[in-house]
């Protein structure tokens, strides 16, 4: 009787271990870059790249259905790759794109825009990376779609490619 109780307890213990570890393996233990999606965009103030005296605040108070925020830098190679998609997004969808120029030299940033085109409605400067962190950014490039309530409805970490472009278009349509 005592042995039976012992083996039953060991068996139950084994089963509970199995269930616990199975559950633990199923749970998401990786970094989730989409945490901010569905949340309100935190308030940030940006000084203009073209005129440092001019400042704006995000979320935008202008009456827009959707607008984009793109974190970019002239020294970032993937930013060059995604730039034509930003230009296309602006031209084909008439969407406002707010750029956040991340830890860049002003002259290089201006040169980048004059050579590759300027799809931005406004470019703000993030000289120390704190503005990007405020909105949950990881680095460059990164893109957010914000709705009229200031809610982040889409976030993409990394360069925009054709698949991401189509996803963004589907969100803003």
């Amino acid at each position: 009787m005592k042995n039976k109780l012992k083996s039953t307890s060991i068996f139950l213990l084994f089963i509970s271990f199995f269930v616990i570890f199975y559950y633990a393996l199923q749970s998401d233990t990786k970094n989730n870059t989409q945490i901010m999606v569905g949340s309100k965009l935190p308030n940030i103030q940006l000084s203009s790249l073209f005129n440092p005296a001019q400042k704006i605040s995000l979320p935008s108070t202008e009456n827009e259905n959707f607008y984009l925020i793109n974190i970019w830098s002239s020294w970032c190679v993937p930013c060059r790759d995604e730039h034509p998609f930003l230009v296309k997004l602006k031209n084909d969808n008439q969407i406002k794109i707010f750029g956040i120029n991340y830890k860049d030299k002003t002259s290089n940033a201006l040169d980048f825009l004059s050579k590759l085109g300027d799809p931005f409605y406004y470019v703000g400067v993030d000289s120390d990376g704190s503005k990007s962190i405020e909105i949950g950014g990881y680095g460059v490039p990164e893109t957010y779609v914000i709705n009229s309530d200031g809610i982040i409805v889409f976030k993409h970490v990394g360069p925009i490619n054709i698949t991401t472009y189509e996803k963004i278009v589907a969100v803003i349509k």
Binding site: N31, D128, G129, S130, S132, I133, E134, Y138, G139
Partner: peptide, 23 residues
């Protein structure tokens, strides 16, 4: 440090880690 492989913020000198340290 979310931009590094299993490092703490203290051990990392990546851009992301340095920005976060400042904040």
């Amino acid at each position: 440090c979310l931009a590094c492989q299993g490092q703490t913020l203290n051990d990392s000198n990546s851009d992301f880690a340095n920005d976060l340290k400042k904040v």
